[in-house]
Structure formats: C-alpha cells, structure tokens
Amino acid sequence: MSAFRLLIARDLRLAMRQGGDAAMVVAFFILTVVLFPFGVGPEPELLQRIAAGIIWVTALLAALLSLEKLFQTDYEDGSLEALSLLPLPLEFQVLAKCVAHWLVTGLPLTLVAPLLALLLHLDPAGYGALMLGMALGTPILSLLGAVGAALTLGARRGGVLLSLLVLPLYIPVLIFGVAAIEASIGGFGARPHLLILTALLVLASGLVPFAAAAALRQALE
C-alpha cells in the first residue's frame, strides 16, 4: 500500500477506534438545525425559505467543530514530528489527512443533509443541488480548515482562534452552496454555481497543501 493511502487508512482507523467524532459532528449538525424552528417559529413557508441557508451555515459550524483535532493529537504525542520526517512530502500528508477528515465528517454531513432538508420543508427541486453542493463544498471546508488547524497548533485558545481564522474563508462556499439550491428551486439550474464550487475545490486542493505544510513546519521548528 502506498504511504499516502496508508496514512488515510491510519486516520480512518483512529477515527473508528476512538469513535464518536463523526457521530458527534452529525449530532451537532442535526441538533443545531432542529433549534431553528424553535427560534423562528414552525411555519412551513418561513422554514422553506430559509432552509438552504440554515443547513449550509450549520454545516460550516459542524465542520469547524471537528477541525481542531485534525493535527492537534498528532502534534501533542509526537506523531506529527515523526510524520514530518518521513519521505512522503508533508504536502501530500496534509492532503491525505484532509481526505480522511472529509470521509469522517464531510461525507456524513452530506448524507444527512437531505434528512434535515425534509425537516425544514425544503422545496423538492433543491435536493439535488443541496447534495451536489455539499459533496463539492465540504471537501473545501476540510481543506481550508486544515490551514487554520495547522496555524493554530500550540496556540493559546486554539479552538476559538481557529473559528476566527477559518469562518471568513468559508464565506464563498456558503454563498455558492446556498445559491446553487436557490437557483435550482427558482428553475435557473444550479450548474454555474456548482461549477464555481468545483473550481474552488480544485484551487483549494492545489494551494492548501503548501500553505498547511508550511504552517506545520513552522509549528514543528
């Protein structure tokens, strides 16, 4: 097995053994969405209108929740130091860890999203764009989050700081994720928005590994 896949497999195995991380993220996602009808009232028309926004904003927060641990435990137990001295370049390791992180958090969030759309009476025409948008957008969340997680290693109040750094960077994903759903409900087709999300994903996969690896190196210095 290649080192790249071995690292993904290790992170998945750790997530499985330590358990709960994915389940917690999904539970947070569902619980937070369920809070909204209590906050704004249960009228189906109102919920239907804001469903896309609620689901996407909550997905951002849920993804954020799991990011702090992305490098933290490896950093604390010395694994990160040992990983950084392996022949596999740190850039690829970042990418591998992002893939594992997405499989454990982004993918479950994407799969649960239609259920929440149901609770919020989202127009059936928006489901396809919701799923596709989440499938394209959540990997970007993992990637951008990796930069934030790497930068805040060893910082005081790392978790709060991480959200301050990462949330502004999430705005484009939020805008195009929600716009895709609204466009397809409005009958314009979600294609342009999904294409932009794809472009953002390509851009992030190309640039993030370098930024995050540089951040990890300076954290280990």
């Binding site: 750790l14 137990d77 694994s79 130091e81 040992a82 022949p87 370049p89």
Partner: peptide, 20 residues
C-alpha cells in the same frame, strides 16, 4: 526528501496512539 528517507529520528515523545 532524500535526507528524510535516510534518517530515523527518535525524540522525547514516543509517537504512539493509545488505541492502536
């Protein structure tokens, strides 16, 4: 990269995962 391939570094921490 070639240097990393030819070295073993064992620092103060053991780099072990409790669950593996």
């Amino acid at each position: 990269q070639a240097h990393r391939a030819r070295l073993h570094f064992i620092g103060h921490s053991d780099a072990l995962k409790p669950v593996l």
